[in-house]
Each structure stands twice: as C-alpha cells, then as structure tokens.
C-alpha cells in the first residue's frame, strides 16, 4: 500500500467518496494532514510517512469511526474517512478551592468529530461550555473525562493528559487556534506576531514575513501598523492580527473562538473567505461563531453544546 498521498489529496475536499471497508481510514487523516505538509515540505520529506503507513493499525480506528457515526448521528455525508479530530465522552468541571471546593460543572459526555474539509460550529448560549471544549482540544484546559483524539500523520494521538512536549508539538504541527483575544507580547511587532507560527515551522524569516504581510493586507490592517507591537491597537485591529496569526500556519485542524466578534462587515467577509480556503485545502475547522451570518456562511453543521450540559 505504497500510496502516493497526492492521490487522496487531489480529490475535491468534501466530495462524496465511496465508503470502502478495506480502505485504511488512517490514511485519510494522514492525507488531510499531508496537504498541509505539502505546502511547506518537499515531496521527499514526506517519504517516511508514506512508508510507515504500511504498518498503520487500521482496525481500531475503523471501529471508532463506525461507532461514532452511528452513535453521534451528526454526520451529514461529509468527508467519509478518519476524522482530524475525534472527541468522545468528554467531561470537564472546575473545582474552585478558594470558594470552599465549589465544583463547577462545565460539560459532560461531549462527542463530536471533525473531518478534513469541513467546518463544524459549536452552538449554544454563552456559558454552555463552547470555549472550554476548544480549550480542551488545544490542551489549554485539562480533560477530566473522555478522550480527544487528533490526527497525527498515520495515528490518532490522545490530547487528554498528553505530556507537555507532545502537546507543544501537536500545536506546532497539527492544531491551530485563533483565540478570542490576542495575548500581546511586549515589544514584538504585529508582523512578527503573525509570522511567528511559520517561523516555528522552520520557514525562513523573509518568506514568513512576506506571507504575514500578505495576510495583514487582506485583512485591511494598514501597513504603517505592521512594525508596531499590537498592545495599543484597537480591538478589531488586534483581532485581525490574531486571525492572521491563526490562519498563516499550516496545521490541518484549526480551532476558532469567535474569530469575527469585533470585526466590521468587510473584514468579516475576509475571514469567511479565509475559512472557506482552509476547507478547500482540506483543513478541518471547529469554531464558535455568535454571528449567524458568518456561521451560516462557513459551517457545514452545528453541534448544539447544550446537549452536553453537565
């Protein structure tokens, strides 16, 4: 099964694909992932992956996948194949020791999957636990119960309880995150903030900055601001820096926490385009969009988080 990754990559993303039990579902995840790699790496750099896929454990993943499709009932004929993200029975509560050990349940029994080429929206009112779910997927919040599996080349890797080194690598290579607010680092220019994820992937400074500039231009951030640290920027300007930082990198799974909250209509449209481009490239996206127009424009389906209230 020496598959050329390009063979699976080149199919139109999200296009219906014959379900074939003999097919290695892990391959799809790897293919979705390798789309991203292809942008940055030479074909030669992928060879080890293609080779090691020979020994990929097909059966367990397949079992999971089938179970999920049946139990979750949320698949809409989208992206048949192994998911980029598989959340199963996830539960979380906070214990507030300073409030006499008060336990604050957040969510329980969250199950969902995100496949290559689709955008899944988390729906529900404020406080339903949407952001907490994203944060658990990103390893920012700890997982109390259940499992968060993320496609990592030919394997699904457990995020819950992952060692810091593994989590950091997954963030660098697999999981991107556009947080609601930019965490400003003193003295670092907007352009460098945006270019940083690419630099971490090993892209040279000049290329990274050129791509960062191109994204900031698309997001209508005036060039005179690029050299300044974003601390003094307006909320909307900071959010655009944050969006650019999140979209510049090439992780196959992208988490979006209200990426358009403080944006005007023109910039919202840019973000919608960026999301659609990521989908077309085979990324999977899991996002929170309070703005219905944005959600309708990008989301393939909505997972109602109130179903998981703890």
């Amino acid at each position: 099964m020496m598959t050329d990754p390009t063979a699976t990559v080149s199919r139109p993303s999200g296009a219906p694909q014959a379900r074939n039990a003999s097919r290695d579902p892990a391959q799809d995840a790897a293919a979705g992932a390798s789309i991203q790699k292809r942008a940055a790496l030479s074909p030669a750099a992928q060879e080890p992956d293609a080779g090691s896929r020979l020994g990929a454990p097909a059966a367990p993943s397949l079992g999971r996948e089938t179970n999920h499709a049946d139990a979750g009932g949320q698949r809409a004929g989208h992206g048949d194949g192994a998911p980029l993200l598989l959340v199963e029975n996830l539960g979380k509560s906070f214990t507030l020791h300073l409030q006499g050990g008060l336990s604050l349940p957040v969510v329980s029994a969250v199950s969902l999957a995100v496949h290559a080429g689709e955008c899944v929206a988390l729906g529900g009112p404020s406080g339903a636990g949407k952001s907490s779910i994203l944060k658990m997927v990103f390893g920012n919040y700890r997982v109390d119960k259940g499992s968060v599996l993320v496609a990592d080349h030919d394997a699904m890797v457990e995020v819950a309880g992952a060692a810091p080194r593994l989590m950091l690598r997954l963030r660098r290579e697999r999981i991107g995150y556009v947080s609601q607010f930019l965490r400003v680092i003193p003295r670092v220019s907007a352009l460098d903030v945006v270019a940083a994820p690419l630099r971490a992937e090993g892209v040279d400074a000049e290329t990274a900055k050129a791509r960062a500039g191109a994204l900031l231009t698309r997001l209508n951030l005036p060039e005179r601001l690029w050299g300044l640290p974003p601390a003094t920027f307006s909320g909307g300007e900071q959010q655009r820096v944050n969006v650019a930082r999140g979209f510049i990198s090439t992780q196959p799974l992208l988490l979006l926490d209200e990426p358009t909250a403080s944006l005007d209509a023109a910039n919202r449209a840019v973000v919608i385009d960026l999301i659609c481009e990521k989908k077309a490239q085979g990324c999977g996206l899991l996002g929170i969009f309070h703005d219905a127009e944005t959600r309708d424009a990008v989301a393939d389906r909505v997972v109602d988080v109130t179903r998981f209230s703890a």
């Binding site: 906070f94 507030l96 020791h97 700890r142 810091p164 989590m167 950091l168």
Partner: peptide
C-alpha cells in the same frame, strides 16, 4: 505541566491561590 494549562486551569488549591 504545560505552562498555559497550569496557569489557565490550575488544579491545586495553592496554584489557584
């Protein structure tokens, strides 16, 4: 643990303090 995890989701009473 991971820095942002420990600071954003501290588990021990002393860390929460």
């Amino acid at each position: 643990g991971l820095t942002d995890q420990v600071l954003d989701d501290p588990r021990e009473p002393y860390t929460q303090l």
